[in-house]
């Protein structure tokens, strides 16, 4: 009891910084035009400028666009996909994981085998192949990712539900003939929500890495789009003239993923201390 208060009070500095960074990124996502108006305006005449050029802190890219503004504008494309992946995957996970964990039997067998088989497949490889061949752009890639990510969540939710299901407080509710819907919504979900939320949160980081890998390969986004992965591959061509064009996008991806992981790990630690 005292311990939880302690941990809440002592949020490590790394976590505070990470939360700050994530808030900034969320702001860029929500209002790109506020922070970087005209990011996609080109000034080809100017050509590629190196970092620290006057008026262009991070220089300009091959099309003469300001790299910093592009970076801010790219946050939306870089983050919306991963967030949708995490949401979609957790929804499938909750649905199928609960069915498998609560009802058991044949449904459990089918769902668990499906998850096992999908889990043994190389995710990124399949995503590249599927998104590339199907084409259809950004949202097809997101859909493919949702399908490939969901088995992890199905398994997670399933084992969390199974762990709760055997506990005496659930059995007491069963003895009192409380309805299944009520047991699931009032008893099981509140107790697995933290695990599920943390996993959802960490999935955003993995989604970011996967989605930016696809866009780096030119899948899902067009050349010249404001998207961190795409900027990295676009910037590769001007690595001599303005290394900041590629490196800044890379750093943005790494920093975001690291921050999400730090906050997620901290939440895991905290919830395991509380229980």
């Amino acid at each position: 009891m005292n311990r939880t208060i302690d941990t809440r009070a002592r949020m490590p500095r790394s976590v505070k910084i990470s939360i700050g960074v994530l808030i900034v990124i969320a702001a860029c996502m929500a209002f790109p035009n506020l922070f970087a108006p005209g990011a996609l305006n080109q000034d080809i005449a100017q050509g590629t400028l190196p970092a620290l050029s006057p008026g262009h802190l991070l220089g300009t890219d091959a099309l003469g666009r300001d790299v910093l503004k592009l970076l801010i504008a790219g946050a939306r494309s870089a983050m919306v996909g991963p967030i949708c992946i995490a949401v979609g995957s957790i929804l499938i996970g909750i649905l199928l994981g609960t069915i498998a964990g609560w009802y058991g039997g044949v449904a459990d067998w089918i769902i668990s085998r499906y998850a096992d088989i999908t889990l043994s497949m190389p995710t990124l490889l399949l995503a590249i192949v599927a998104a590339g061949i199907i084409g259809g752009g950004y949202w097809v890639s997101v859909l493919v990712m949702v399908i490939l990510y969901s088995p992890f969540d199905i398994r997670l939710v399933r084992s969390a539900v199974v762990a709760q299901k055997g506990k005496p407080y659930i059995e007491s509710a069963l003895v009192m003939r409380i309805s299944t819907g009520r047991i699931l919504s009032r008893h099981i979900f509140p107790n697995i929500s933290m695990v599920v939320f943390v996993n959802f949160f960490l999935n955003i980081a993995y989604g970011l890495v996967s989605m930016s890998s696809l866009s780096y390969l030119g899948l899902g986004v067009s050349p010249g789009d404001a998207d961190w992965g795409r900027q990295l591959s676009d910037g590769r061509g001007v690595l001599f003239d303005n290394p900041a064009a590629a490196l800044s996008a890379g750093i943005a991806i790494v920093v975001t993923a690291v921050c999400v992981n730090i906050v997620g790990n901290w939440m895991t630690e905290r919830s395991s201390l509380e229980s």
């Binding site: 980081a205 890495v209 930016s212 890998s213 780096y216 992965g229 990295l232 591959s233 590769r236 690595l239 290394p243 590629a246 490196l247 996008a249 890379g250 750093i251 991806i253 790494v254 993923a257 690291v258 999400v260 992981n261 730090i262 790990n265």
Partner: peptide, 18 residues
């Protein structure tokens, strides 16, 4: 290792390449 698991290999690749 946190950075290693969070960083996509192409970003690291480009960085060391540079």
């Amino acid at each position: 290792s946190l950075v290693g698991t969070s960083a996509p290999s192409f970003a690291v690749g480009l960085f060391v390449l540079y």
